[in-house]
Structures are given as C-alpha cells and as structure tokens.
Simulated assay, not measured.
Amino acid sequence: MSYEKVHSLLKELKLEGISRVLDSSLQNWSKGDKDVLELIEELLIAQKKENENKKYITALRYSGLPFHKTLEEFDFSFQPSIDRKQVMELKTLRFMYEKENVVFLGPPGVGKTHLAVGLGMEALREGKKIYFVNAITLVDRLKKAFVERHLEKTIRFYKSLDLLIIDELGYLPLDTEGAKLFFELVSQKYEQGSIILTSNRSFTEWDKIFEDEVLATAVLDRLLHHCTIVNIRGKSYRLKEKQKTGLVGIQTTIGRTDKLRKSER
C-alpha cells in the first residue's frame, strides 16, 4: 500500500490524529526497538487525544461562555478578599461530583464572572456538560417555553447539564411569573446537578430580586443547602484597566474642571 493511499484512507476515515503523527512515529519506530503493537498503541493514543480535543472544542462552542478565561489568568493579588485556596479547591470540581452549588457574591467588576467561567472551563476539560446563561435571558427563555407549552422540555435540558452557570442574578428584579419559573428550575436541579451563580446582591436583599420574601427564602433554601459561597469585596477590574490607560484620571480632571467652571459662573 502506497504512502499516499495510507494518508488518503486516514483522511477518509477522519483519523486526523494518526495522520498527524504517522510519519514521525514510523521514523522513530524504524530506528528503535519497539514492536508493532507499541507503534499501533502510540498511533491510537494520538487519535484518542485528537477525538477528545474535538469534543472539547465543540462543547466549548456550545457552552454559551462569553469569553474563555481560565482560573490561571485571574489576578488574585488584586482581590485579596478572595481565599485562593478555596478557589483552588473548587477547581478540583469536587463540588460537581457531589452535586453541590457555588455562589459568587460581590459588586460589579470584581471578577465574579471570570471565576465562574474559569470553573466552567475546568469542567469542560473534564468532559462535563456545561452551559452559561445570563439570569434575565434564562428567565425570558423559561417564560417563552411556558407560553409555547414546552417548559418541561426546556427544564429537562437544564436539568441534564452537569453544570449550569447563571450570571448576574439581581441586576434587574424578576416579575412574579419569572420568579416562580426560576424557583421551579432551581428545584429541579436540586441535588441533580450543580449550579454556579453570580450576584451583585447579598442574600438579605434577595427578596428585592424576587419581590416575594417567601419565594426568595425557598430559592435560597435549595440553592444554599449544599453550597460554597465566595463573597468578594474589592475594587473593580474594569476600573483597574481604565487606570492603566489613564482614562480615570482624565475623567476626574474633566469633572473637576466642569465643577470649577460652574462655580465661577
């Protein structure tokens, strides 16, 4: 069988992993003392890695993640209120295997979403099914599904996920219908899969999100029963980036100049 024919068959069978390493593997094999079975094993391992990488890329594409930052890229020195050991423990994904939840609390810009995405990236590497969605978008989808009479199917999808990441709960209050549907989803996920949730509001303010103290308590009861809470108190990363470019100083100077002009008038 000719060299070209072999590579043509590998391409036809979509064995890109083997095709990529075949030449170097054959060359090393011919110079060494490996038997044929060891060569075949090496080629099969290369193909397995290729398949896993393809699966990861596909899962990443459909994960809904807004960006692909890892936990290694997170600047813990800028947020000293965060217990790095706690985050590294979460990185092991033990919480997912035990069907536990994670809640990141803190003001806008402190890195809640970055940490949630970073954990999502770790879960994808482990071959887990994950999905990221904004809280308001999620509720709108549930409401639409209810109207179109396929709510059960929609909740079944979210329930099937190993990890559901719900971002920015609390930026806008939920109406009664939306709050009830959100509660239904959390109830269905309870002890069946993990949720990572980010919020800019403390738990004492959740009655303002749901506009119903009883419903807020019911959501918290299920969400926090098996949960790790990371409370972040610190400066905004967005402000940090503006400071690097000098925009904050410029804006402050402009503001002071405007005030001075008004006082002169």
Rank of each mutant, 00 (worst) to 15 (best):
T70K: 11
P66C: 03
W29T: 12
D23N: 15
W206D: 05
G32L: 08
D83N: 15
C227L: 12
A145F: 12
F104T: 09
S199A: 13
L65Q: 08
R156W: 09
L215R: 01
T257P: 00
E89L: 09
R201Y: 11
F95G: 10
R149T: 06
L260E: 13
L119N: 02
N101I: 08
T176C: 07
L220F: 00
H68R: 11
A123W: 00
G17D: 04
M121D: 06
K189I: 05
L247V: 10
A179I: 03
M96Q: 07
K262S: 11
F182P: 07
N28C: 06
L172E: 12
K189M: 14
G111W: 03
G120A: 04
H150N: 15
L223I: 14
N53Q: 15
F203L: 14
L119H: 04
V133F: 10
A218N: 01
N53I: 15
T257M: 04
E72F: 09
L44M: 06
E50T: 02
I82Y: 12
K54I: 12
G127P: 03
L10Q: 08
L13G: 02
E38I: 12
P107W: 02
L215W: 02
N51C: 06
L197T: 07
G111C: 06
E100P: 10
D162K: 01
F132A: 03
L224D: 13
P66Q: 01
G111E: 04
P108G: 13
F146C: 08
K14A: 02
T228L: 06
G106K: 05
T113F: 01
I82M: 01
G246S: 08
G249P: 10
K235W: 00
R125I: 00
A123N: 02
N28L: 09
K31A: 15
K235Q: 10
K259I: 14
N28R: 10
V6Q: 11
K262R: 12
E12P: 01
K244E: 12
R201V: 15
E184W: 02
Q47M: 08
H68G: 06
T252Y: 02
E38M: 08
E50A: 03
L163C: 01
K34G: 04
V103L: 06
I18G: 13
S199R: 08
E100R: 15
G234M: 03
V133L: 07
D258M: 11
G127K: 10
V139H: 01
T58Q: 09
R265C: 09
R141T: 06
F104L: 12
L105R: 10
V147K: 09
L172Q: 14
I254C: 08
V110E: 08
E191N: 07
I130P: 00
K235T: 11
V6T: 15
I165E: 03
D33V: 11
V186R: 04
M121C: 07
E4N: 11
L9V: 15
G118Q: 12
I250L: 01
L161E: 05
L247Q: 13
F76G: 06
L65K: 00
T204M: 11
R265N: 13
D83E: 10
H225W: 14
I195C: 02
G118Y: 01
A135K: 04
L169G: 00
G255M: 07
L174V: 12
F157N: 03
G109Y: 09
N53L: 14
K48S: 15
K112N: 05
